[in-house]
Amino acid sequence: MKILAFAGSNSKASINKKLVTHVASFFNEHDIEILDLNDYEMPLFSVDKLAKEGIPSLATDFAKKIDSSDFLLISFAENNGAYTTAFKNIFDWVSMIQGRPVFGNKQMFLLSTSPGPRGGASVMEIAKNRMPFSGGKVLDTFSLPSYNKNFVEGEGITNSEYASEVASKIAKIKAELLK
């Protein structure tokens, strides 16, 4: 099985990229590709640019990555209670590709984290409600609050309650994927 993982952030030090990379390691028996949104930086979406220049090749490249995968792991960074501009811009461009749902009708596990106690709860709510309308089949979600207290790079989730919760969700997802 091919798993595509990425953080909805363009921060070089993204805590969401660290989280999604950690969670992806639990699927190491599969082929995993971890994307960096910085590799898909495009002009800010507008209908005027779309009409004048068409869809950027990076948007179609991103869509091809989704289409060639079997399962998506996405960890959403939160900016002002919503998606980051980097993620939203890619989402908007890919949504303009005719004849395909943005997330290719792929099953997905949605993640989020933040330094604060809500763990990106606002963006997670947006994402889990939006993905089904955009070709994403959400199998489960996990938000890690207070990242700096509950995650250590190289070790992963250090809070046993959250580590147990994500492990249980991963086990459930693996059972679902192997049906």
Rank of each mutant, 00 (worst) to 15 (best):
N89E: 13
P43H: 01
S46I: 09
P56N: 01
A77S: 11
L4Q: 04
M124K: 05
G99I: 04
T84I: 11
S95L: 05
S122H: 10
Q107P: 01
E53I: 06
A86S: 15
Y162M: 07
N148K: 15
F27L: 14
A59C: 07
K88Y: 07
K2T: 07
N159I: 07
N129Q: 13
N105E: 13
V102S: 03
K106T: 09
F76D: 00
A167V: 09
F76R: 00
N89L: 03
S14H: 02
Y147S: 11
Y40V: 10
V138H: 03
G135T: 03
K172I: 11
E53K: 13
S68T: 13
D70E: 12
G8R: 01
K106W: 10
F151K: 12
G154I: 11
E33M: 10
N28C: 15
S168F: 11
S112C: 07
E161W: 01
N38K: 11
E125V: 08
A163M: 14
Q98I: 12
T85E: 02
F76Q: 02
V123K: 03
F45Y: 05
T113A: 12
F91D: 00
A121V: 12
T113E: 04
S146T: 15
V47D: 06
S95C: 09
F62R: 04
K2D: 13
I55V: 15
D140C: 08
L37V: 07
I173G: 04
F109Q: 01
V123M: 06
L139S: 05
I66M: 06
S122T: 07
F26C: 10
G8I: 01
I55K: 04
T60G: 13
L4M: 10
K149E: 12
A63G: 13
S168Q: 15
E41G: 01
Y162T: 09
L58W: 02
N10P: 13
R130V: 11
M124C: 04
D70I: 11
A171P: 05
A121D: 06
L72Q: 01
S143H: 05
D39G: 05
K172Q: 12
L110T: 08
R100N: 09
I34V: 15
N148V: 14
G99Y: 02
N150S: 05
A5F: 02
I66A: 07
V94S: 00
D70Y: 03
N148R: 12
Y83M: 06
F62V: 08
R118S: 15
H22V: 09
Q98M: 08
D61P: 03
F62H: 06
I32N: 04
K49P: 05
A13C: 14
K64E: 14
L44I: 10
G135M: 02
Q98N: 14
E155K: 14
I74H: 00
F91G: 02
T158K: 08
F133V: 12
K169E: 04
R100S: 13
G81N: 13
T113F: 09
S134G: 02
K128Q: 14
Q98G: 05
A51K: 11
F6I: 04
N150P: 03
K88C: 04
K169D: 03
E153T: 14
K52Q: 11
E33W: 08
E41N: 12
S95I: 06
E41Y: 08
K64S: 14
P145H: 05
F27R: 14
N148E: 14
G120L: 06
K137A: 07
